[in-house]
Amino acid sequence: MTLYGQAIISGVLAGGLYAMMSLGVSLSWGVLKIINLAYFSFILLAGYGSYELATSHGWDPFVTVLAVVPVVVIVGALLQLFFEKVKIGEFESLLVTFGLLIMLESVARSIWSADFRRIPSTANPYASSSLKIGDFAFPTPQLSAFLTAIVIGLLMKYLLDRTYFGKAVRALAQDRDMARAFGVDHRRVAVILSGLAAATAAIAGVFIAMSQALFPGLAVEWFGIVFPVVILGGLGSTLGALGAGVVIGVAAAIASVAWGPSYAPLATFVILIATLLFRPEGLFTRKASV
């Protein structure tokens, strides 16, 4: 049963990364009512930034987080500020961020060409390394991503439950107008929240660069990972995204071993359908929480 055990571990860890990739879209759509496809670009550009620093300047891939995250956070916050100023509607946000996605993909292509970019193992020892516990291996990038996702999840939970900011966020998610009537500054909350979400996207990008190859068209390929997580986890829920990521990762892993990797997507989507039939607000949300 080492086979199943190892596969499940792999699925769980992968789920953490999926969750981090999805958090931006989930929070944005759930709390701010903005469908922000630009998060996919943030992940990609963060990954490219990490790649560039690690490959051409010899930075340790983990350390690139320090350089990459602030940049993406600023961009994310500025974008949200822009949305606030133009009073963007829901459909509009989808289309505008789609336009941004197209543009940023083109920028990536101009700088790094359309070809694959992978940090060579000489600059990135982590892709092949892992933590061993007994018979089981926990690959380093995935384990780090998972642990980071847990930390972020707990942090968000703390923020949401124990701070005024969190209360403001939850209030906005429940009823925007009432929240404003009670003095919640929508703009400040939105900008801070999107900054946080952008940070998680950037961190996800760094871990992706650490474990995979990048190319400009990759951003669009992530739709098939992020949207199932968002659906399962419930819009706006951080721990929900984490849970959903893990469920998806594990289901795919088990299907992969039991019936072959070609069945992995089907397992994910069967869960999706079941969830939508029985608990469409997401597996992990309480009906009115964030």
């Binding site: 190892q6 792999s10 892993a253 071993v257």
Partner: peptide
């Protein structure tokens, strides 16, 4: 495919 762990395990 985004998670190669199960395949590697197999």
């Amino acid at each position: 495919t985004s998670d190669w762990g199960p395949i590697a395990a197999q």
